[in-house]
Structure formats: C-alpha cells, structure tokens
Design a protein around this nucleic acid. Sequence first.
DNA 1: TGTCGGTGAAGATACGCATTATCAAGAAGG
DNA 2: CCTTCTTGATAATGCGTATCTTCACCGACA
Lengths: 349, 349
Amino acid sequence: MPSKRRRVTQREIAELAGVSQTTVSVVLNDRDGSNVRVPEATRARVKQAIEQLTYVADPAARRLAGLDNQIIGIFTYEAALSPESMDFYGPLLNGIERAAERIGWDLLFFTSSPVENGTRSLFHRKTRLRLTDGCVLLGQQMVASELERLVAEQFPFVAIGRRDETAAAVPYVAIDYVTPTTALIDQAAAGGHRQALYVHRGRNTPTARDRQGVVEAASAEGRLAFLLVGEERIAELPRLARATEATLIITEDAFLAEDVVHALLGAGVAVPDEMSVAALGEVSGHRIDGRAMAGFHVPRQQLAAEALDLLQLLITTDPQEWAGLETRRLLVAEVEPGDTIVTRTDVPS
Amino acid sequence: MPSKRRRVTQREIAELAGVSQTTVSVVLNDRDGSNVRVPEATRARVKQAIEQLTYVADPAARRLAGLDNQIIGIFTYEAALSPESMDFYGPLLNGIERAAERIGWDLLFFTSSPVENGTRSLFHRKTRLRLTDGCVLLGQQMVASELERLVAEQFPFVAIGRRDETAAAVPYVAIDYVTPTTALIDQAAAGGHRQALYVHRGRNTPTARDRQGVVEAASAEGRLAFLLVGEERIAELPRLARATEATLIITEDAFLAEDVVHALLGAGVAVPDEMSVAALGEVSGHRIDGRAMAGFHVPRQQLAAEALDLLQLLITTDPQEWAGLETRRLLVAEVEPGDTIVTRTDVPS
DNA sequence: TGTCGGTGAAGATACGCATTATCAAGAAGG
DNA sequence: CCTTCTTGATAATGCGTATCTTCACCGACA
C-alpha cells in the first residue's frame, strides 16, 4: 500500500483564511440563512483561499455526510464493451452517456462484480453500489432475488427491458412490441397475405411471449393465419411454405430473418417476389439483396434517456411516495415498412 | 432530497452478536495478530450475524478511512460511447473492461465533466476523481495543465497515446509507429519501388511527426525517395505521380488511403497494378477492390491491458519510488503486408 | 445600567469504517 | 502470594464534510 497522498482540505483553507472549517463549508455551499451568516468580506477572503489552494471536495466525505454523489451505477450481466455486445448495448450506452452528460452524472460500471455461485452478482461484500445515487440494470439474465433485494432496500434503480415476472414491482423501461407487431400484421393482411409462417427462437422471455401472443391472436381472429415454427426447423421452411401456401414469413428478429432468406434462396424461392419476409425486431443494417428489410426500428437511445429520466425521478422522490409513481414505461417501436413485403393479388381470400 | 435510506452497519451487527464494532471490523477483514485477537467461537458468532443481516460495506466510509476503493477513473476528452468514436475507443474500452474485470476493478466514467473555459475539465469543484485509486486518460486533446497537476499531486494515472510535449513526466502507453513504418518502407524498396508519395494530414501530433520523420529519413538516405503531399492536394495526385514517376503512395491513415484510391481510379490509374498503396495506420476493415490494404494492425486491446497494468503498478508503488519506474511503454504496431503493394521490376534503380 | 435582539462565527457532532492504544481477567512463573 | 505474560476484547480516535447548537459581542432600548 502506497503512502498516504494528502490533499487540500477545508481545514487547511480555514487556517489560511483565519476562519473555522464550518465557515469554509458554508461558503462553499453558498449557505446563508438565519442560522449561519457570513458577511461578504469574510466570504471573499475564504473564496480567495479556496482559489489559492485549488480545493476540490472529497466525494467520499460528502457521501458519508449524507449527500448525493451525482454518480449512477451501470450493471450489465454480460461484458458491456465487447465488440459482440456492441450491437445491442452500443446504442443504449450511447444514450445513457448523453443523458448523463446532460444532467451532470458520472457513470460507474460494475465491471468488477465477481461470479458467485455461477452467476454474476451485484451484491457482494465489497460492492460499490452504495457509492451511487441509483443504478441502471441491463441484460437479459437478471437475477430475480437481486431485483427483489433492491426493491426491498428501497434503492433507486431502473431495469432496461421488461421485468414483469418478478413478484416485487421492478421499475423498468422497455419496448412495446405489441403495437407495432399488430400494425405489421394488419398491413400484411391488407396487402393480400392470408397464410404466413412465424419463425421463433423458442425463448420464454416477456417480449418473446408478447410477439408470439399477437401472432396467435391474429391467427385466431382470422386476420392472418400463422403456422408457428421453431428456429431449428429452418431447413424445412420451403416445404412448410408450400404445404400451407404461405406467402409471408415473419421472424422473431432480423438475424433469424437472414437465415430464413438464405434457406429460401437455397431452395430456389424468390424473395420477396414469391415469399415476403419481415422481422419483429430492429432491422437497421439488415438488407435483403439491397432491399430494406421490413420490421421495426427500436428507439434504443430514447430508451436509455427515458431510463435515466425515470431514475432521476426515483432518486429525487422520497421512497415513501414511490407507490404513487408510474414506474413502468413502454416505448413503442416504430414500424419500418421496408421493401420485403410485396402486395399479393393472387391469393384467394 | 429523499429521506434517509438506512443500511446495515457494523454497529448493528455488533449489537446482534453481542460484541463491539471493532470486533466486527476485525472479523470482516480477517485481521488477527498480536494486537487484536478474536477466538474462533466469537468469530463464528459474528460471521453468522453478518450473514443474517446481509451486511455490505459502505465504500465511502472505507475510502474515508484511507483504504483503496478498487475503482479506476476513465476520462475521455470526447464522448466515449458514441457511434462515431467507437472505431477508435471501442477496442480500447473493450481491453480496459476485460483487464478491469480480471483485476476486480470498477470503472468510473467521468461523463459529467463540464465544459469550462471552452475545454472539458477533469478538475472541477465536485470532481469525483478522488473516489478512484487511479485514472486512465484517453483522447487527442488533453490539456497540458491538467496532466501537470496530476503529476504534481502524485495522483496515479496513465495516458493512452504519446505525451512527450508536456514538461512533466507523464506516464503513458502508446504505439510505436517508427519500427513498422521503417519496415514497411524497406519492404517496398525491396519490392523495387524507388519513387513514392507520402500523403499526410498536416497534423503536428507526436505520432504524425514520428511517421513523417521516418519517411523523410528514408528519403534522405536514398532508400526510397518521397514527395510529401498535404491531404488538400489529393486531386493533384495523379499528376504528381506522373511527374515524379512514383509507383507507390503511402498515406497517414487508411481513410486517407481510401480517398486517394478514389482519386486515382477516377483518373484512370489502376490500383495496385499501376500504383501501389499503403497506409501507416490500422487497416482492418479497409479493402481496396476486395484486396486487403497494406498497412498496420494496431494492438489496441493490448494497449489497454498494458495501460491498466502500468496503472496498477503506479497505484501499488509509493510515489516516492515512481522516479525509478519505467512509466512510458511503447507497443509496436504489426505490419499488415496486404495485397496493395505490388513488386515492380520495371523501375530503373 | 441592565436587558434584549441581532450578527458573526466557532464548537460539537454525525456519518461508517479501520486502527491504535488500552484494559481486565486469567495463566504461568518465582 | 506477588509479578509477569498472554489472551480477548473494548474505548478512543481519525478520515473530511455538513449541520445543528451554542456563544460572544455589540448596539439599541427601557
């Protein structure tokens, strides 16, 4: 351990200015009332001493004294800054950074959180969580017990992504996939499509259930008939399409759609002329033979901004009052019509 | 301001276990010597109380008591997480994250640092710099006065990128461009090239000077004759090439090389058959008509790892001893031969 | 002249933790 | 039986800041 690195303290300033530490604190915080009073002359003298010694407050001491820190924590289940995760985290982190910059917050990334009992854990003996005024949680695999503990401890935090499964009321900001999925399906139906396939990954996440629910509802209500297919059966798609006379394949996300298109082209099916394709996820950067893929635009930066906004609300509100707050916010993904859904006039209704 | 959020303290554990706060602290830190002794029985009782109340240490209090925090600061001059800066910062941040994860450090991004007097400043009244054990500085535009202040305060920090211009000895980790530039030029000369153009951006940074210095030296020593051209004269390149009978154009970076190639192709010059091209910078992802561009691979992730390694060394070493340390490290960029430098047998030597 | 209210500032304390010094009780030794 | 260690633990203190309480002083007023 290195020797102590000493810094300028309020006490030293006090000595230089010939006043007490209390007075320095008062001047620094521009406090002035009936309780404490510092005349302009003294104030100026103290300020001069502050300048002279280039004082900077010790955040740890401020924190210990019960003040806020202007730091918020970022906890990600996976590595946040790796190239692989940048597709997903990148826009979110960018949005968070910009919002933090605007409000004047620093960001503490919990990159140290060790793996305990097989999962990454926010609560360990030396967690720096308490250094922050609040925390943003990112990632698919959050641990329910940790969320509940955060709620129980009345620690201000916001999850990004739906967290309905947890018993406790977890504040979150997430994407509404129901609205745009419904819109997309209705548009396809209006375009003459009657039979379709839905290719999914078989995940049991809230958003996956949401999307699938809309698909099933559309099927049940006769707006557009779907056959649901797991991703492991991509190779069979051409056959299934022929059997059902489907003219449209919708997939859970854009990557899946690319795989599907690959399989179709391999089987000699023209896309989108013979078979239209759409994805129920972000389609930026995904193109099919030069055409913009039909799907959604997910406002991730806005999502992040919304999360910090909600977090700020929680931080500045007394936990007693949290019950009355709207702590779950949904942002509607925007439909990208794209060029991969063609109008069909050849299908019998 | 929200009401006080109370946490479990050592005192509460002490009460539950029927011991003093001191004993709890001793147990938590596994301290045991001639000064303080706690028998196994008591120790177990305390540990049980700790488990029961799910104690987590308050980092601010630890810090105030003079311990290290396992937090390092990341200061970037520009926005670190924006899509535009990801090309440059991405690999660095990824490397930092991985190294931090390995050592058990959290990362504090100073996203709040406000703009003062036109520049972003690390030292402001409420800087959270003190919360960290050390700091990594990234970006082109560092403010010399701040670097000097960090040095003067004996604060452990490492800059990424050469910082020779500053008077004080700034610890840094940077890329050695001299070695690979020399190698690249020698290889080109060995390939029969005699006349070349060097296209630069006219910047006066250390690395720009380094590269240009090697180019000029090679020219002076007759290994390969260069004509230096500013980027604003790209349009004239075909003419200049003809006038000098150059068979090779080297640019300061890969983006510049792409512009150059564009200009050449526009003038009907075949690349690389008539004119070879290379860049003195990272060429990953840059292709010329399907060919890998000749240039360098810059080990940015390794650079980051090296930076954290050096930082750790500084943190764990008494500032008194810093003078004896090697606080400037260079990593040699690797030459990427690529396919854009062809062998010339038609040039008179 | 004694009292009262206002002014300017210092003293004391809390925050949670680590550490140093101290102390009581029992064991060992003469 | 008195002294000297050893053991087991506690009280006290410091870290830097903010805040609550106290206090001395001075002019005004009765």
